[in-house]
Simulated assay, not measured.
Amino acid sequence: MPARTSSPIPSALEQLGSLTDPLTSSDVVDLRCFLILVADPRDARGLRYPALALLCAAVSAVLTVARSLIAIGEWITDAPQHVLGVLGFAVDPLTGLRPVPHAATVRRLLQRVDGDALDAAISAYLQARTLPPIKPEAQEAPVRRVITVDGKVVRGSRGSDGEADRAKPPEC
């Protein structure tokens, strides 16, 4: 039996909306605007799938609780055709379907992509989707905006009730 992870990802979904109000295609398009800044490390010859579509699919899979490279590959394989279209996969002119990449293709791209650039793009996307905090007039110090992606709280942060502050998802 595999060990349970100590840092589950589902709280990232809370940052993006509730399960009853899922991501829309405009949200994915917004994600693409941030991920386009991540450079494609692959050689230009023989590319079948654009890096942007692969990265969007991988990020979408992780945001839907895929916790391994195998799970990401399975999520992409099981994705409906209209979802693949929103993610940026092209239609094959002979079959009229959007072919999906093999899990090894996604794995190789994720191994070679600049992790810091990918982290910065996803962080910027989450920052853009979070409403700025309202600064109370009596408070003089600037208010920091906190985003929790892994369900943890910021160490040492306490509210007026003495409980640890947790970042709240934006109202969409």
Results as ranks from 00 to 15, higher is better:
99 P>T: 11
44 A>W: 01
73 G>E: 00
16 L>W: 00
27 D>C: 13
30 D>F: 01
52 L>V: 14
28 V>E: 01
85 G>L: 03
86 V>R: 04
37 L>V: 13
51 A>V: 06
127 Q>I: 10
98 R>M: 07
68 S>P: 02
133 P>C: 09
90 A>V: 09
164 A>G: 00
82 H>W: 04
18 S>G: 15
108 R>T: 11
130 T>R: 10
53 A>M: 11
100 V>H: 08
133 P>H: 06
74 E>K: 03
156 G>D: 07
105 T>G: 05
68 S>V: 02
1 M>G: 14
54 L>K: 04
88 G>T: 09
60 S>H: 06
72 I>S: 00
16 L>K: 03
171 E>L: 10
34 F>G: 01
67 R>P: 00
22 P>T: 05
48 R>I: 07
107 R>A: 15
84 L>Y: 01
82 H>D: 15
150 D>L: 15
64 T>S: 09
86 V>G: 07
43 D>R: 15
127 Q>V: 13
28 V>S: 02
13 L>D: 02
96 G>T: 12
49 Y>V: 08
158 R>K: 12
31 L>M: 15
51 A>C: 15
145 R>D: 06
1 M>S: 11
66 A>L: 01
13 L>N: 04
165 D>W: 03
52 L>G: 06
15 Q>K: 03
12 A>S: 11
71 A>G: 13
77 T>K: 05
133 P>E: 04
11 S>A: 15
48 R>N: 09
142 P>I: 00
33 C>E: 12
65 V>A: 11
7 S>A: 14
116 D>M: 05
83 V>S: 06
99 P>I: 12
25 S>E: 15
83 V>I: 14
72 I>D: 00
75 W>Q: 01
29 V>Y: 05
30 D>V: 00
92 D>M: 04
27 D>K: 03
162 G>Y: 05
2 P>I: 04
6 S>H: 07
21 D>N: 14
150 D>R: 08
167 A>F: 05
104 A>V: 13
20 T>R: 08
150 D>T: 14
147 I>W: 00
53 A>L: 12
18 S>T: 15
79 A>P: 07
24 T>N: 03
95 T>L: 05
138 A>P: 00
110 L>N: 03
35 L>M: 08
150 D>H: 07
37 L>N: 12
72 I>M: 00
